Amino acid sequence: MKRFLRLAPFALLLPAVASASVVWKGDFETGNTSQWDREQSVSSSRLQVVSSPVRQGRYALKSIVRQGDDPINASGNRNELLYLSHEPSGSEYFYKWSTLFPSSFPRSSKWQIFTQWHHTGLNGSPPLEFYIVDDQMRLRAGGSSGKIVYTAPLKRGQWNDFVMHVKWSSDPKVGFVELYHNGKLAMPKVKVATQFSGQRNYLKLGLYRDASIAPEGVVFHDGFTVATKLEDVMPPVVATPAPAPTPTPEPTTPATGTPAPVVTAPGEAPASEQPAPIAQTPSVPGDGSPGTGGIIPEDPMLAGMTPAAGCGASSTGGTPLLVAAALAVVALLGRRKQAPAPVRARRSRMPRR
């Protein structure tokens, strides 16, 4: 029985854990890249976890690529992190992340990939990739001969918040992609093949670009989260407050349009000279205000002490207390004057010695 009671709190947590829709986070809040499975970089300095700029939390990823960075002896230059998600065919997920392109990000007519879901095969373009060409963001599905399903102008110096909803399938009648950009639905569901037949995908995040691009490229990524429900990756919509009511104008006289005069009672000061009303709140026992004894219930040294009702004198209760005190003094003096008489009577009956 004791063992069951010790385990009971953990049993209560099981339903919450089982129903959670967040399946993985790569948001760098560990202060390093340990959430990710591996990296492809020429140096640890090319994939830095930084504290500024960040989109959420305390940390973000800074990915740097210079011409000649080729850690895996393949085409192009890259420094990327990998998460071996290996989504099975028919699975459906929401992916959330944010990417910042600083003002120094180079413009080029060549491709620059910043997020991709690569296939388990070794060759060819991935079935789903986000990249930049000529200052235009593009989302393409189906590899090099696939379909560009979304485009948007590149805006430097500000965070791009992405939420992508994907159903993974090599069947274009089953698979789809849906995209939210900066909190708004940017692309409704598009039916398209999101996998190559017989293969699975894995995530790559960082920067991968054509080898002919010479200037240094830098991008920042933050907050990567994978979930099975939209509400766990999309911020709630904040309701717009209702507008303030329009104040009622002062009454005016029909003839001149000037404010109507304010009538005061005989002997009363004009309204402009009268003091403003003072907002008053009732004293609550224990709130430390006058009339309660100054006791604060939260103070453990005063626990259990409650001030007696009416223990404090108010501006209207002081006079009755003084009258009662005076009557008590008079009564006491009267008793003291009466006391000697009986004593003298007892002494007169006592025999003399």
Rank of each mutant, 00 (worst) to 15 (best):
H86Q: 10
S85G: 05
W97Y: 04
R138Q: 11
P342S: 04
G294E: 01
M301I: 15
G26K: 09
N73C: 03
L321C: 07
L12T: 06
G26N: 10
D161F: 12
L230C: 04
T264R: 13
W117Q: 01
L333Y: 13
V42W: 02
L82G: 06
A308V: 11
M187A: 07
V163M: 00
T246L: 13
H119D: 12
H165G: 13
W159M: 02
A339K: 15
A341M: 06
K173M: 02
G31W: 10
E231K: 12
D299S: 08
S43N: 02
A141S: 10
F105V: 04
S169Q: 03
T246I: 15
A269W: 01
V218M: 03
G317V: 07
V166A: 04
S85F: 01
K173Q: 02
Y95N: 00
K2E: 04
G293M: 01
F176R: 06
K204N: 00
M350D: 04
M350Y: 07
W97V: 04
L203A: 02
T316L: 09
W159C: 01
F28E: 04
N73S: 08
L47S: 00
I295A: 09
S109P: 13
G310I: 03
A141C: 09
F94H: 08
T240N: 02
A260L: 10
L82S: 08
W24R: 05
F176V: 15
V263C: 08
D232P: 03
P215T: 04
M137S: 03
L327M: 11
T225C: 10
R58M: 05
P172L: 07
K96H: 02
S45Y: 09
L82D: 10
T258N: 12
G143S: 12
G288E: 01
T264W: 13
V218F: 05
W97L: 05
Q199R: 02
L203R: 00
T253A: 15
A308C: 07
A227H: 04
P88A: 05
G68R: 15
T225E: 06
P351N: 07
R58H: 09
K204A: 00
Q67I: 13
T319P: 14
E298H: 07
Q136F: 02
P106A: 02
P71R: 01
A74C: 03
V226T: 15
D37N: 05
D135M: 14
R344N: 14
P236A: 07
D287H: 06
G124D: 03
M234F: 00
G157C: 08
P300V: 09
S75I: 11
V237W: 07
A309N: 06
S34A: 09
F224G: 06
F130N: 08
G286P: 06
G143T: 13
R335S: 11
L203T: 01
L14P: 11
T252E: 13
E273K: 14
Y131K: 04
P300Y: 06
P106Q: 02
S63N: 01
S272N: 11
R55Q: 07
S34D: 08
G318Y: 14
P71M: 02
F4I: 02
V177I: 11
A18E: 01
A328N: 11
